[in-house]
Structures are given as structure tokens and as C-alpha cells.
Design a binder for these strands. Structure first.
Length: 480
RNA sequence: GGCCCCGUCGCCAAGUGGUAAGGCAGAGGUCUGCAAAACCUCCAUCACCAGUUCGAAUCUGGUCGGGGCCUCCA
């Protein structure tokens, strides 16, 4: 089974063949750093995180580049509003971004370039495009002459005539044609600026990705990713810039993740219905958010709601409870003997991920493995059956290894469950000591065969959201 | 208006020609003093209509419904 990916450029799934066998060069558009990241950013970054992880798991040597766009109209505007420099503002939000991504457990990319560190390369591309007649300087600005690039709109599948109907030239722009776009913008007063052959100015909107990707990955590379909304104009323009300048194919596989919706509607700042990652992590474990996102295919829209996150939390709990009881049951036994069930799980997992990174299907297979573990552990005289213990040990090992590819199931099971319980207690306004005291009281009542009193205590706790569990090792509790 | 996507069990969600994964919820059972968890069993013909095909959730056309891009956006 080999990897297949959906390529936006072709509109279909294709066999994935890297330029250089065994190596993958991947670029993903990062964020413009002027505000806190929202859950849409979380999805995009988590999705490409697991693509990065899976490619490595599949044996590729991956170079992963994710940029920071730290010069931009929105940054300038926001910095001016706050009376600080663009640099101060962008540095603040780069830190915030890094914190958020770390909280979400993302692997760190190979390179994380900043646009402002690539100004010379940006100017070079602009010059090359001017030399080739694909761009022109106009009153300190530089614009891309879209009409000179025949492949324009090949990614988004649009048509020039229809696009032109809606295009217009904004006041202050010096375009020859409404469809042309800015590569370089002359600096206005109080704007960050760099010297250039066309006077002091700053990069346009799309050029930095062309510059950084070619500098770090070469003129042609394997994978370019980002959200669907970047297909036009951002990625379309990147293609025009990069292929225009180099005369070579820019990217072989374009991957785009779907949106996060709120109540079936796109989340957006203009609608005011967005949640920041920080907001979410106050209420939910980061792994819950990741699990929720990975429980749908990356190209599908996903609906964000409390109920859906609670469902995800319950699903994750099933994993951790199985891991917890499984590890306890094997009591330190190692999965030295590869078992049939474990091999099957790995085969199915790979098949799912090979099919355009179908994490939802992969998780389904992991759930199957959980049931197998639970079933075996519940077998009578389990501990006296070495072959079953070995199978469970192997399965638990596999579940964790494959979980790591998805960035989940890496916590200590008991600790994770405990942390969930404690977080829930705070919500319920209860203290652990009170519960322990109630358990003691009930234990005494049961010793005295006063089951009525015992049940009464249990019912009282249940009414407050706590379930008591009688196990072989004593009474524990969990959130209802 | 142009381009594009989606509509699968009560909910979430896989499944692009071969007869519907998985999770949650629900029903019955095993276990339990009673419970909980776990396990076992059960629980959908895929918005609608018409085609293509030996065979369609999967292909084609149409209808209805929802969403996205075309302006900053993951």
C-alpha cells in the first residue's frame, strides 16, 4: 500500500511520489501574527502536524517549513492602534503562537522563517519577474502582470473573464490591470520599510511565501499546504510568482484543509463567532481538541460545539481507561512477542493514513483495538494465560505508538484520567476530600451490611455528579 | 451572477461501482448485594426523482436543502 493524497491542483487523489526518493519537502502557510490564534488555526496546524508525523512514520526524511508572516497591512494597522511598532506587535504574537502550538502538542517544524528575514530574496524575485516582463514597477510599487502568466488560475479553476467582473483597483493603487496584484508596496509614512531598487517599501501580500519556500526548499518541492481559503488568491499568486520567476513547476501536491464551522456556519472574525485556542484550552484538555479535530477527515468541514468536544472527551476517555486497565492487567509484561492483533491494527492504521491521511478511519481502527484489549483483559484467569497477556502487551504498545503518529495517547493513563477528574470536580464545586470521606462512610455501612445507607450515600454523590465504582481493589469514583 | 463543496442511523463520523467502519446515545444479556465500567447481542439502504450498470451511498441528469470562494482569513 502506498500513500495517496488529494491534490487540489488536479482535483483528485494521486499516488504520492516525492521528487527525491525517501525525502519530502513540505511548506505550510503559517499565520499573520497580529492576534491570538483561533480554532481554525488550530485545525490547520494540527492537520499538517499529523501529516508531518505520518510522513516521518512512513519512513520519509521530511523537511517541514512553516512561516510567520510578520509584515502586513493588518499588523501595521493593529500596531498603530496600540501605539507600538510592528516589530513589537509581531514578536508578541509569535510568542503567543508558539505557546499555543506547544500547548496543542505540535511537533516543531524543521524551519520557521519570518518574512522580514527574507527581504533580499523577495527583492530578487521581484527583479527577476520585472526582467522577464511578468511584473512592472509603478510609482514605487511593483505589480505582477497577471495577463502574462498563462497558467494563472490553474489551481483555483477560475476563469479570468469572470474574475475581472468583480476586480477593481483600490484607491492609491497603481495597477495597469485590476487583476494584477502587488509584489512590493511603496512605504507610506510610519510604515516599516526596506530599501529596494524601487525605493523604500515592503513586501506585498503573497511574495514572502515564494521567497521563503524557494530559499529553504528549492524552486520545486513536494507539498504545499494551507487552509482552503488560501487557494485563491494566495496560493494562486504564489504559483504565478514562483513559476514565473523560476520557469519551473513550483509545487507537485497542493493540500488544503477544510474549515471549522460554528453552528454550521463559517467561523470568521467579521461574524464575531470565533474562539481562540486559549479560550478553548481553559475548558478542555488540548488532547481533547486534537482528538476532536482528527475524528473528521482533514478536508471535510468540521462543526465546533461544546457537545462535539464533550463527545471527543468521552471517546478519549475510553482509550485511556482501556490503557489504564490494560497496563494494570499485564502488570509490567512486555510486548516482546508480536501478536496477530497488533499486526492487523498496524496494517489497518497505515492503510487508512495512506489514503489521504484518513485519521477518522485510523481512529476507528484504534477503537477496534481498544475493544480487543478490553475483551482479552476481561477473559477469565487472564493473568494465567501468557499468550493473552503477550497479545495485550503488544496491542497496548501498538496503540500508543500509532497514537503518537496522531499526537494522542501519550499521557500516563492514570494521570490523564486523574487530571480529567480533578478538572471536573472544580466545575462541580466539590472537593476530593469530601468524596473520600463519603466513600469511607459508605464502606463502613457496607461492612455493617447496611446496604440501604450505603446506597443512600452513593445516590447522594450521584446526584451531585459523582459515580462510585466498586472494584477489586476498593472503591474509586469518576465523574458522571 | 461565476466557480466549488456537501446532504450516510437520534448525534458525531468513515466509506468514489460489489452489496453500509467506528464512537456517543438506546434496547436486551453477562458480571455486581445493587450499581458503574467492561464484554456479548441488537439497532441505517445512504435528501428526493429519473437514468447508466449484472450490480450504485458511490457514475450521469434533474429537484430540494445547506455551505464555501470570488475582498482580509486556517
Amino acid at each position: 500500500m502506498s500513500l495517496r493524497v488529494y491534490n487540489t491542483l488536479k482535483g483528485q487523489k494521486e499516488d504520492f511520489k516525492p521528487l527525491e526518493p525517501g525525502k519530502v519537502k513540505m511548506y505550510v502557510c503559517g499565520v499573520t501574527v497580529y492576534d491570538y490564534c483561533h480554532i481554525g488555526h488550530a485545525r490547520a496546524n494540527i492537520v499538517f502536524d499529523i501529516i508531518y508525523r505520518y510522513l516521518q512514520f512512513a519512513g520519509f526524511d521530511v523537511t517541514y517549513v512553516r512561516n510567520y508572516t510578520d509584515v502586513d497591512d493588518k499588523i501595521i494597522k493593529r500596531a498603530n492602534e496600540r501605539g507600538i511598532s510592528s516589530k513589537e506587535l509581531s514578536e508578541e504574537f509569535i510568542r503567543a503562537f508558539d505557546e499555543d502550538m506547544a500547548a496543542l502538542g505540535l511537533a516543531v517544524p524543521t524551519h520557521q522563517p519570518k518574512a522580514t528575514e527574507y527581504i533580499p530574496q523577495i527583492i530578487e524575485i521581484c527583479q527577476k519577474l520585472i526582467d522577464k516582463g511578468l511584473a512592472y514597477a509603478s510609482d514605487g510599487d511593483v505589480y505582477y502582470r497577471v495577463g502574462k502568466f498563462p497558467d494563472y488560475l490553474k489551481l483555483s479553476g477560475r476563469n479570468m473573464d469572470e474574475m475581472q467582473a468583480g476586480a477593481r483597483i483600490a484607491p492609491g493603487e497603481q495597477k495597469h490591470d485590476p487583476m494584477d496584484f502587488a509584489l512590493w508596496k511603496a512605504a507610506k509614512p510610519d510604515e516599516p520599510k526596506w530599501e529596494s531598487p524601487w525605493g523604500p517599501g515592503r513586501p506585498g501580500w503573497h511574495i514572502e511565501c515564494s521567497a521563503m519556500s524557494s530559499a529553504l526548499l528549492g524552486e520545486t518541492f513536494d507539498i504545499h499546504g494551507g487552509g482552503r481559503d488560501l487557494i485563491f488568491p494566495h496560493h494562486e499568486n504564489e504559483i504565478a510568482q514562483s513559476e514565473g520567476a523560476s520557469g519551473k513547476p513550483f509545487v507537485n501536491y497542493w493540500l488544503h484543509n477544510g474549515f471549522v464551522n460554528i453552528n454550521q456556519e463559517k467561523m470568521s472574525k467579521s461574524l464575531g463567532n470565533f474562539f481562540t485556542i486559549r479560550d478553548i484550552l481553559k475548558r478542555y484538555n488540548p488532547e481533547v481538541l486534537r482528538f476532536f479535530i482528527l475524528s473528521a477527515h482533514y478536508r471535510s468541514p468540521i462543526d465546533f460545539s461544546d457537545q462535539n468536544l464533550i463527545d471527543a472527551e468521552n471517546g478519549l476517555r475510553r482509550f485511556y481507561e482501556a490503557l489504564d486497565s490494560g497496563y494494570e492487567a499485564i502488570d509490567g509484561a512486555q510486548g516482546t512477542t508480536p501478536a496477530e492483533d497488533g499486526a492487523l491494527l498496524e496494517t489497518q492504521f497505515k492503510a487508512a493514513m495512506d489514503d489521504d491521511f484518513n485519521s477518522a478511519l485510523a481512529i476507528g481502527h484504534l477503537f477496534d483495538a481498544v475493544r480487543t484489549v478490553n475483551r482479552l483483559v476481561a477473559t477469565k484467569k487472564f493473568r494465567k494465560k501468557p499468550e493473552l497477556v503477550a497479545t495485550v502487551a503488544d496491542l497496548l504498545q501498538k496503540i500508543r505508538t500509532l497514537g503518537e503518529v496522531l499526537g494522542i495517547l501519550q499521557s500516563d493513563p492514570a494521570a490523564w484520567l486523574n487530571q480529567q477528574k480533578k478538572a471536573g470536580l472544580v466545575d462541580l464545586g466539590l472537593k476530593e476530600a469530601d468524596i473520600e470521606a463519603a466513600i469511607e462512610a459508605r464502606l463502613q455501612a457496607r461492612k455493617d451490611k447496611d446496604y440501604a445507607r450505603g446506597d443512600e450515600i452513593r445516590d447522594e454523590l450521584e446526584a451531585r455528579g459523582i459515580l462510585l465504582l466498586d472494584t477489586a481493589k476498593g472503591t474509586t469514583w469518576k465523574l458522571k
